[in-house]
Design a binder for these strands. Structure first.
Lengths: 213, 213
DNA sequence: GTCTATACGAGGATAGAC
DNA sequence: GTCTATCCTCGTATAGAC
């Protein structure tokens, strides 16, 4: 009698970097769905096509994986900010550039706002460090300050105004499943048309909310 | 020998309605902290001062308790909407009334936006019925439509505009722990002064975002 | 580096006494 | 109506083979 064929499937790959990247992609999805607390390592493993053990082998524990996901997301946004032209002497132009860059990033990654909502509410911002938040908000706050000084923007509180503007841009993506019934049945809130409509409307409202009438 | 004194503490109360109300209050807090999935019945019981069993006795299961919390919250908002004067012939006045009423409700219940974020993202809006969303958004959408027709508001998409405006109003309360480092250390984001500043800024930005320049 | 198998704790839910 | 005690499932994390 020949030995029974081994039950174990062959490892999908042995490329550690490729495996880590696939885990990070799946994890980003899962953390957006359920947050650090609700995310299931089993679900991440299933989406990735590897076993749970690989997550612990490569990232130590669930929290380590979560931090890696956050770091990658923040790095992406910082890179976008650097690419955008925010130093136009006209504050209104700089503001439009910032908002446009931000909304286009969201367009391509609509699940990211959810990650940060979870981070703020569930983890009380524990992993979303002071440095990261400063890097993301400071450019916007600076533009608002410049516009107020130049007499282009109303004299609002720049910090509250900045937070509110980000809220106006991201809320759509965080509440899609709550508000989808406002549109006719069958409308896809993430279709290219709907995302463009959101971008247009949000950009207009955000900028107009600040300009002097 | 006399029988040993019973270890069991006397029941805190035997008033079912009072107990249910205390459970609902604690549950609202806990669901805002962690959502339906992350909420711990044990935590709710501890905050309430009764045992876990009472939750199951009065509400069947965790999901039943969750639905009861949502219903109470929605009923509150609907009652506020009915109290506000939204039928002023001037759409700008009606809009200011709506936003002011909404922001004042948030002022008193800053944890409610979190409940709805969880509901949308985690539960995909399963318990936040079509009827509820319609009741909450329709008055705002109607005001926006009236203002556009009267030539007071820019010709934006009314549905997207309404969602974005709500986002501008609630985002502050959902991201406090993410953005708190923007303010000097020791600033309390929920102090009366900060909440008033948020109300003022958000109301201005929301209305200005719609008005024709 | 990847897999299988399992230990171990946490938490929802129930049974039954009072 | 409220409490105590317990069951059982689920999910993180680890051990060890390949």
């Amino acid at each position: 009698m020949s030995p029974p064929p081994t039950k174990k499937a062959a490892p999908a790959t042995r490329d550690a970097e490729a495996t880590k990247a696939r885990i990070l992609d799946a994890a980003e999805n899962e953390f957006a769905r359920a947050g650090l607390l609700g995310a299931r390592t089993e679900a991440i493993a299933a989406k990735t096509g590897v076993t749970k053990s690989m997550i612990f082998y490569h990232f130590g524990d669930k929290e380590g994986l979560y931090q890696a996901v956050l770091e990658r997301v923040v790095a992406l946004r910082i890179s976008s900010i650097q690419k955008a032209d925010l130093h136009n002497s006209d504050a209104e132009v700089a503001l439009r550039n910032f908002i446009d860059s931000f909304l286009r990033d969201l367009d391509g990654n609509p699940q990211i706002p959810a990650i940060f909502f979870y981070e703020g509410i569930q983890n009380k911002g524990k992993f979303y460090s002071q440095i990261a938040i400063t890097a993301l908000y400071t450019p916007l706050v600076d533009i608002i300050r410049r516009g107020i000084e130049a007499g282009q923007f109303r004299a609002v509180d720049p910090l509250h105004a900045a937070v509110n503007m980000i809220g106006m841009c991201v809320f759509y993506y965080c509440s899609i499943d709550n508000v989808k019934h406002l549109w006719p049945a069958g409308t896809n809130p993430l279709s290219a048309e709907m995302k463009e409509l959101h971008r247009m409307t949000a950009a207009e409202q955000t900028v107009a909310g600040l300009l002097i009438r």
